[in-house]
Nucleic acid binder design. Structure first.
Length: 567
RNA sequence: UGUCCCGUGGUGUAAUUGGCAACACGUCUGAUUCUGGAUCAGAAGAGUUCAGGUUCGAGACCUGACGGGACAACCA
């Protein structure tokens, strides 16, 4: 192999997605004067979820990489479903992810005037007509994917009359549903979207931005492509289901454009995650039916839910980077998302002691009333995070799981006669325990400690098989800890034809633990602050937490090879 | 009985545009560890849905099957 080849291998760039390849080609071809302008176009009718994050990362990320701009545009063409509540949450979530649209905050409703004029122009050119038929009739005349449609009796209405009716529709002279404006394309097209699509309908509810100045509203298909055109979008990135809409968008732009410029639409696969679902409608049902506690319930795949769960924007972006953009409809394993958050928090989260299911351990030869501070490293992955002092005393709590009366093989924890290290403190030996014979519950464990084995001390070299986390009973703070598991116990809960997704709800998706014992330093933790509870997982302070009642959420468990062995 | 899109280890993606399939997650070993975490070393696992064709050479190109998906809201 020549030296050149070796160098090439070492320098080989990470591959870019097919979308980015198209963009790069356009740039090389001198299209759009070398500009890249994208847009993220949410409808303000729900909260953003991780699937939207995939689009956001693409739209904003690509623009940034190619020195372009990305607009935020709310597709607010349906006043009956949309609300400012959603506008605000969407903006917050995009910022949280770390993207910014500067002053370019647009609304499809900004273009209602232009869109109306364009529709009027289409009428004048004989390319649009007012249809007086009811919805069911129009629908039945559309035909089916395998059968051509039939033409409306109003299809050949004269332009003057169409124009007059369209104006009067907008003045509120007609009832909702009584008339629509349709584009005059081709009722026999194999593409259903081209069969004289409805482009305007009468809606009399007020709009969150334009109030009641309009009585007629453009359909999404009539607003979206043209909005891109008005904004000078060069690359219009969207999900696969809009592929069949593209010919329609092109048809509109053909009527509208005055030069060579036109936005290039590129479709990619939407994000699917195992054991959850992304349908906004179904997520709304979970909220409305009280199955979850709100849009920001930590079990939700919404960005606010993930944020409250303890996910970082970096971990979400890393995950999205890992899964890539293709045209294959894929379902991604949540374990990859979990890997991303573990990897991020491993570096960032300070380690602390928290005992979820406390078991009292009495160290009988440790002087009563004595207490001492032991020093612990905050994060072995990052020395700059320093050390802290944790109080130790005669009575400590350990995890119930860390003691067994009759241990199986390879149980490196506490059991009668066995020794174990209390991390950062001493080696202790189990001398006995107290058990409620009726229930079989272990109530207390009695140990002795080896004074010489204090961590960092002269006798600390001695090895024992297990190391446990612990909390001094006297100094511990109580907390509620919420353990989350997947919301559904089916990989694809909403993809089952026969069964409603509700059938697959995991009854154990939330377990609330009270009386958990935490080390005292946690008392002052701020909301959403993240920690690794050593040997257990990553946790963050819930937004419900107060000074009087600490509440933590478990973001994700640590990998647990013992649990696997134990199976 | 249509039109459009897609088929690469268990999962998600690569393959310098035609030169004998790479990475990540997961899985399994082992080392190490005062977290059964992290880290380190290693392993197993696909011959690219199938059948033809073009070519010296195909995961890439062509044809045809097969399989999956999208499209029939006055939703977006």
């Amino acid at each position: 192999m020549s030296e050149d080849n070796i160098n090439n291998k070492e320098e080989s760039k990470p591959s870019i997605s097919f979308i980015e390849q198209f963009v790069a080609e356009d740039l090389e071809g001198g299209k759009n004067s070398g500009n890249v302008i994208t847009r993220f176009p949410p409808e303000p009718n729900g909260y953003l979820h991780i699937g939207h994050a995939k689009a956001i990362c693409l739209d904003f990320g690509l623009a940034k990489k190619y020195n372009g701009k990305c607009n935020l545009r709310f597709d607010d063409t349906n006043p009956v479903k949309e609300d400012v509540e959603y506008v605000d949450s969407i903006k917050e979530d995009i910022h949280w992810l770390g993207f910014d649209w500067e002053e370019r905050e647009f609304y499809a409703s900004d273009y209602f005037g232009k869109l109306y004029d364009f529709a009027a122009e289409l009428i004048k050119r004989g390319l649009a007509y007012v249809d007086d038929q009811p919805a069911e009739l129009i629908s039945s005349q559309k035909g089916t994917p395998t059968q051509p449609g039939t033409e409306s009796p109003f299809r050949n209405r004269q332009a003057d009359e169409n124009l007059d009716l369209f104006r009067r529709m907008n003045k509120g002279e007609f009832d909702e549903g009584s008339r629509v404006l349709r584009a005059r394309v081709d009722m026999t097209s194999p593409n259903m979207h081209l069969r004289d699509p409805i482009i305007y309908r009468i809606i009399k509810s007020p709009h969150h931005r334009t109030g009641s100045s309009w009585k007629v509203y453009p359909m999404y298909d009539f607003a979206h492509g043209q909005s891109d055109y008005f904004e000078g979008i060069t690359h219009s990135l969207c999900t696969l289901e809009f592929e069949v809409h593209r010919p329609l968008y092109d048809w509109f732009i053909d009527q509208l454009k005055t030069d060579d410029y036109r936005p290039r639409q590129i479709e990619f696969n939407r994000l699917n995650l195992t054991y959850t679902m992304m349908s906004k409608r179904k997520l709304l049902e979970l909220v409305q039916e009280g199955i979850v506690k709100g849009w920001d319930d930590p079990r939700m795949p919404t960005l606010c839910g993930l944020r409250r769960r303890g996910y970082t924007p970096e971990s979400i972006k890393k995950f999205i980077d890992l899964i890539g953009y293709t045209k294959v409809e894929a379902i991604n394993d949540v374990s990859l998302l979990e890997h991303a958050i573990r990897e991020d928090l491993n570096i960032k989260a300070p380690r602390v002691f928290g005992v979820l299911n406390p078991l009292k351990v009495i160290i009988s030869n440790y002087p009563e009333g004595k207490e001492e501070d032991v020093e612990l490293i905050n994060n072995p992955e990052d020395e700059t995070m320093g050390k802290r002092l944790v109080p130790f005393s005669r009575v400590v709590y350990i995890e119930q799981d860390d003691f067994m009366e009759i241990p199986p093989n390879k149980f490196f924890r506490l059991a009668p006669g066995m020794e174990v290290r209390l991390k950062g403190a001493y080696i202790i030996k189990c001398e006995g325990f107290k058990k409620d014979e009726a229930t079989g519950v272990i109530e207390e464990v009695y140990c002795t400690y080896d004074k010489e084995t204090r961590s960092g001390g002269s006798g600390s070299e001695r090895k024992v098989k297990g190391t446990l986390h612990w909390v001094s009973a006297k100094h511990s703070v109580d907390a509620e800890v919420r353990l989350y598991d997947r919301l559904f116990n089916h990989e694809d809960p909403s993809g089952q034809k026969e069964d409603d997704y509700r059938k697959f709800l995991n009854p154990e998706s939330l377990k609330v633990l009270t009386g958990c014992k935490l080390e005292p330093s946690l008392k002052s933790a701020g909301k959403l602050e993240k920690f690794q509870f050593q040997r257990l997982g990553y946790f963050c302070v819930d937004t419900d937490s107060t000074d009087r009642k600490l509440v933590f959420n478990r973001t994700v468990q640590l990998k647990d090879t013992w649990a696997k062995v134990n199976k």
